[in-house]
Write a protein that binds this DNA or RNA. Structure first.
Length: 293
DNA sequence: GGCCGCCTGAGC
DNA sequence: GCTCAGGCGGCC
């Protein structure tokens, strides 16, 4: 379900509810969500661990224990993480419950069961959030135009697809790639090797701007979070283009278009995000074999 | 590059 | 009944 801003919202809500608590019994109702190690060992290792803090890297959350062990997870499409009192009725599709020392429970609910948990013991290499697995955070100063250009400038894939590559930038998914490209004024189907220096500049500044804006717009109280069962976020109504095909562009009023790009539904403004911007004509010269008018 | 699998549910 | 969904890995 969530992208970086939503995962950060979950982290901020849960940290004060989890820090300092010790894990008691561990109940796994569906072993397929446990990616590492085997469910039996996973449960045994987890029991008795005291939670120090929760961090986020890209779309991954990590519970850090005082022992030095860590529990990392990814919510994928429909994962929900909730802290609630032991007596509350179980939501359908609850797959994991950790009882906490304050008589609350940390519950993992996931309709589609795409989400995954990994437990790493102290000293064990984290294969998920290491440097070769995840690129910089969107707010990392390294993410300037020259970084993007040197990393992507020769690629023939679309810029939208490359923004989804977690090794390039961590945390961007289908909503925020559309939002970022709208703010940057770049057509989502533009090939990376056709982007100009000015495009890379606007993209570099749009990435942190839009992500920070998303985190800010997501802010909510723990009560609101629980009421929305951890799946309703506040920013949806503020998104500029995502899910708004047919509606007027917030900048120019033209109807927003929807198109499948890189296999993902994409929404953009045909006027503000031109597929062939003026001045890019020389980039459209095709070799003879391509001309099949 | 595109397609499929993994899953269930919402909306049409 | 069909299509689609905010993710990601794998396959050809």
């Amino acid at each position: 379900m969530p992208e970086l801003p939503e995962v950060e919202t979950v982290r901020r809500i849960l940290e004060p509810q989890l820090a300092g608590r010790t894990v008691g019994t561990v109940e796994v109702y569906n072993e397929q969500i446990i990616a590492h190690p085997k469910a039996e060992l996973f449960m045994a290792l987890l029991q008795g661990q005291t939670i120090q803090k929760i961090s986020r890297r890209g779309k991954f959350l990590t519970l850090h224990f005082e022992s030095g062990d860590r529990l990392s997870l990814h919510l994928r499409m429909t994962g929900q993480l909730l802290v609630m009192p032991k007596g509350e009725p179980l939501e359908k599709h609850t797959h994991l419950i950790l009882s906490l020392s304050d008589s609350n429970q940390l519950r993992y609910i996931d309709v589609r069961r795409f989400g995954r948990f990994w437990y790493f013991q102290k000293g064990e290499t984290d294969t998920l959030t290491g440097q070769d697995a995840l690129g910089p955070e969107p707010t990392d100063p390294i993410l300037a135009a020259d970084y993007l250009k040197s990393k992507l400038g020769r690629r023939k894939k679309t810029i939208k697809e490359m923004l989804h590559d977690q090794t390039v930038v961590a945390g961007i998914g289908n909503i925020y790639s559309d939002e970022i490209l709208f703010v940057a004024g770049i057509y989502p189907g533009a090939k990376c090797d056709a982007l100009s220096d000015a495009d890379w500049e606007r993209l570099a500044s749009a990435i942190p701007e839009v992500i920070l804006w998303g985190i800010d717009a997501d802010q909510m109280t723990p009560e609101e979070y629980l009421r929305g069962k951890g799946k309703e976020y506040r920013n949806a109504e503020h998104l500029r283009v995502y899910g708004r095909a047919g509606q007027p562009c917030p900048a120019c009023g033209e109807a927003l278009c929807r198109k499948v790009i890189g296999g993902r539904s994409s929404t953009y403004c045909p006027n503000c995000q031109k597929a062939f911007p003026a001045g890019a004509g020389s980039l459209q010269v095709k070799s003879q074999g391509d001309n099949q008018a």
